[in-house]
Design a protein around this nucleic acid. Structure first.
Lengths: 119, 119
DNA sequence: TTATTAGCTTGCAAATTGCAAGTTGAAATA
DNA sequence: TATTTCAACTTGCAATTTGCAAGCTAATAA
């Protein structure tokens, strides 16, 4: 979710497999805890976009530290992950600031979605 | 474990309760993953000291980020935790370096325990 | 030498998870 | 317009994991 926007089926078809009922209950709990929120999908009413809240975005430093630890003790990291960590190690504070700012700006409400937020 | 050395009963009697069979299996797995290791207790053969390995000590940055996140979004932190986070916010890198160094020095093998490590 | 402590293991009920199939409403297709 | 497909779930049930209580063994303490 830090990398891109996600729908229910995006999660369901991700590499790390998860049972559909478990996915549903996890998403529900994360919404309840205000770590993520539901948004209408711009291209279809049938789709739901799950987006990080500010509280969720603030988990980024934790995720990065986990990835740095994993890099140190495991050898199966993806190339994308390795590339990201290279940047992180060059300037961790700067990286997190930039990524956080970008994620928060993506939270800006597109006009066509504004109404849905208020019902 | 980052704060002090721990025995099986220390964990069992901690504030966050855990069932004894679950504790046993968790400790076993953490030893298997080399996050912690068993040591003989200096004051009794009946006791076992569980200590963090270097791999375990390297989890400290993750724990600190989790605590910082918790401080931001929850209000039930202990006074000790708050005091620690105050130091962290003054100089995060310095704090982690110092704490890590100290934890690793505690790993120095006391003479009376050396033999036990090699069987 | 008997009692207690520390570190587990075992048995069983309760809760959680995984898998497969079904439901509902929106959108694409015929 | 009718029908099929798709996305997001829900439901039922078996398998796994967890929690609780009791028991077991070796090492100290009384």
């Amino acid at each position: 979710m830090f990398a891109k926007e996600c729908t229910y089926s995006d999660f369901l078809n991700a590499d790390e497999k998860i049972a559909t009922n478990i996915l549903a209950s996890r998403l529900q709990k994360l919404v309840e805890y205000k770590v993520i929120e539901k948004r209408t999908h711009p291209e279809s009413k049938a789709k739901v976009l799950y987006k990080l809240t500010a509280k969720g975005i603030d988990l980024l430093p934790i995720m990065i530290e986990i990835d740095l630890w994993a890099e140190k003790y495991f050898s199966n990291l993806s190339d994308g992950m390795k590339a990201m960590l290279k940047k992180v190690k060059k300037d961790k504070v700067g990286f997190i600031k930039k990524a956080t700012k970008q994620l928060k700006s993506e939270k800006a409400i597109a006009p066509e979605n504004y109404a849905a937020l208020h019902r």
